[in-house]
Computed example of a mutant assay.
Amino acid sequence: MVFAVLFPGQGAQFRGMGADVFGRYPGLTRFACDLLGYDLVALCRDDPDGVLAQTRHTQPALYTVNALHMFERAHHEQRQADYYLGHSLGEYNALLAAGVFDFETGLRLVKKRAELMAAAHGGGMTAVMDTPEPQLREIFAADGVAGVDVAGFNTDQQLVIAAPDNVLHAAHIALKERGVRFAPLRVSAPFHSRYMAPARDEFEEFLRGFTFAQPQVPVIANVTGRAHRPGEMVRTLSEQLVEPVRWTDSIRHLLAADPELECEEVGGQSLLRMVARIRKATPVANSEVRN
């Protein structure tokens, strides 16, 4: 039976996270604080300045907490994964778990990624419910709303769109007039869209300064919904900033290998709920998975 371990991304943070693991890994925790230049434990425990939800802080904090939970999981010799995958930021924890880089390298990558994404502004993201992509594009075309990108395929019932503020405002009007349910996300920029191209270019150059090992366990890439391919780590991770998170394709890829796919989420339940919705909407198939 195929078993996958899932890592959540930005949006899964909460005040008090990490309280159960910081004390068990004091060395790694101190290192993270030193590299980041602030008290990560206090940030997660108290969020004294209300900045935990800011991209610059959210991503390194969540990467660290996810990593410590992963180390705790390994310490207790829990069931070994056949696949790792993470949602957006969570992909870095999946790559860490698969041995592609060590904790320090991952934290340096995430810190840079967070800084670049935080520097982007003038846009946002919105979750749209029960409206397939073709229908969504028809709605926007009918109302002359141009410049909306699909930034995430979370389930068949939920897409995420991204655009500059004025475009996103027009998109909201078009959706509201047709009774389509939507929920703006609390982010500062249109992540996973064409508008992140400048950040993508800078991040790609940064990534070229690192060496990546081959995954010891397959890691499903957000960009392709398939396992990372040899020699394409830099391109795939940089493209993740401008391409949609193909979570539905990723889970269906594993369901094709084993309809009885079992999953465990590190530190939460939101991804497991997505998996349950995707499974419910997926016809049973007996094809073999191909990387």
Score class of each variant (00 low, 15 high):
1 M>Y: 05
7 F>L: 08
8 P>R: 03
18 G>K: 09
22 F>I: 05
22 F>L: 11
25 Y>S: 12
28 L>K: 10
29 T>D: 01
30 R>E: 14
33 C>T: 15
34 D>R: 12
35 L>I: 14
36 L>H: 10
37 G>E: 01
39 D>S: 01
41 V>G: 03
42 A>G: 03
42 A>S: 10
43 L>C: 01
44 C>H: 04
48 P>Q: 11
49 D>T: 14
49 D>N: 13
50 G>D: 09
56 R>L: 15
57 H>R: 13
58 T>S: 04
63 Y>Q: 00
67 A>F: 02
67 A>P: 00
71 F>E: 13
72 E>T: 14
85 L>M: 15
87 H>I: 02
93 N>H: 04
98 A>T: 00
99 G>W: 07
103 F>K: 04
114 A>L: 03
115 E>V: 01
117 M>A: 03
117 M>W: 03
119 A>I: 00
121 H>L: 01
123 G>S: 03
131 T>H: 05
134 P>Y: 11
146 A>W: 04
148 V>G: 02
149 D>H: 00
150 V>T: 10
150 V>N: 01
154 N>A: 07
156 D>H: 08
157 Q>T: 15
159 L>P: 12
159 L>W: 07
164 P>S: 06
164 P>H: 09
165 D>V: 07
172 H>S: 11
172 H>M: 09
178 R>G: 06
183 A>L: 12
185 L>G: 06
194 R>D: 04
198 P>L: 10
204 E>Q: 10
206 F>Q: 03
212 F>D: 02
214 Q>A: 14
219 V>H: 00
220 I>W: 05
225 G>F: 08
225 G>A: 13
226 R>N: 01
227 A>D: 13
228 H>Q: 05
230 P>S: 14
231 G>K: 07
243 E>M: 13
244 P>Q: 14
246 R>E: 04
247 W>H: 08
247 W>G: 10
248 T>Q: 12
252 R>N: 06
253 H>I: 03
253 H>K: 09
254 L>F: 11
255 L>S: 13
257 A>N: 12
258 D>T: 12
268 G>Y: 08
269 Q>S: 15
271 L>D: 02
272 L>D: 04
277 R>D: 14
280 K>G: 01
282 T>R: 14
288 E>V: 13
